[in-house]
Amino acid sequence: MKKYNLDENLIAKFDNEKAIVTNSVDVFYGNHQSIFNVNLDFPRFSITALIGSSGSGKSTFLRCLNRMNDSIANVDGNIMYRDVDINSKKVNVYEVRKQIGMVFQRPNPFAKTIRDNVTFALKKHGIKDKEELNERVESSLKEAALWDEVKDNLDKSALSLSGGQAQRLCIARTITMKPDILLLDEPASALDPISTAKIEETLKNLKSKYTIIIVTHNMQQASRVSDYTAFFHSGHVLEFDKTAKIFTTPKIQATEDYISGDFG
């Protein structure tokens, strides 16, 4: 494996409104440090891709943004969202996760009906009105581009869906909470190309309403869907810029090698 200078980096800053800002985030699993001093500003209403080889820390970092690492790792640093450091112990972690939703690598629908998958969390958060629930089911399934495929089978088990459908159901389930930010952890890695294309299409449509941060190891995907790209290597962010710039004129050697496939 080639050695790169991990201290040499290029983190661009932009003037747009910020959705979430991280200040010197470090992550430790026990004594092992896996994320080093990450400072990233995520512009609002845009898609940011986190790329890098497996083990580079991109997923770990993503999970910090809605506190999904709480029980597995120690996270240091500040994560500013709406002027609140959501990495603080004092913050209500459930509210954080309502505002910042997450879709995981493997589709994980609940062992319930399609409808209940969408309404389950809504009901637990106090929405009881049937009409409203039905409306939310329809609108979120439409947003996730799944409505036409399942509208006649809403009371079927979600476990009967195909992988791609299940993943879009998971997206619908997340956006029905009306979050501010949507985190996606390699959402298409377990899917076939057609399902992947559908998910990407869905993401582009969602961009107008949500800030999306997506982890992917698929560089074509990153270049197709994202506006900004951050390149992770060995727990460091080496380069962050507009996607077009990263993919055409990378400034850092490691980024260039990774993008051209001459890496590792």
Partner: peptide
């Protein structure tokens, strides 16, 4: 801001 209050 309402969200900020909720978070805290």
């Amino acid at each position: 801001m309402e969200i900020k209050k909720k978070l805290l």
